[in-house]
Amino acid sequence: MPEAPTGVVCDDETLVQLARGGDRPACEELFRRHRDAAYRVAFRMLGHHDDALDAVQEGFIKAIGHLEDFGGRSGFRTWLLRIVHNAAIDAGRKRKRMPSLGIGDEEHNPIEPACEDDPARGLNRADLRRILDGALNRLSPKTRMTFILFAEENLSYKEIAEIQDVPIGTVMSRLSYARHKLQSYLDLDAIDEL
């Protein structure tokens, strides 16, 4: 796999050049390198495995179909995440699916965490995720995405600003707002076991 014609491992820029020329293994290598990051962002945004995979799929198809629009100033990953970000926001808008209702096999469970009334019992990973997703879902999609890009992918303010097409000050304000809101939505003191 794409190592590329010379057998040397390529950087993203080289792969993009090859992919622009229709080199399918180069496209696949770009997919292989960035699919997990794209999935993590989409999953956090949508709270649902299948929806996240759909957003990643749509994102990659759009990205590969529009490689000529990739200016190369930002990295390919930043550019891709911008596309996946838009795909995820579109998907969320269209389906209006509540992330907290769509986690794994517990799609039909109520929004309230099963163990919230009994913290001593301990919370499993799915419970914790349901609690967090419920709080995340109360943020606006744009603020939620800002927080996700920062917390999940550890992107710089500049990268997030480029992805969301907003000033860097807006990114920082959204992060601050998101943390305050999440603190107020979550009963963090009640969650003992992490």
């Binding site: 997919f31 999935y39 956090r44 198809i61 990973r125 914790l128 609690i131 603190q183 963090l188």
Partner: peptide, 27 residues
């Protein structure tokens, strides 16, 4: 605590088989 909660709920990435299916569809 919020950071810890975030870390504890990091999504499990799909398996190689799942990704292969996705790539087949994209391709």
């Amino acid at each position: 605590k919020l950071n810890q909660l975030w870390d504890a709920t990091r999504p499990v990435e799909p398996s190689t088989e799942v990704w292969n299916e996705v790539w087949t569809e994209i391709s």
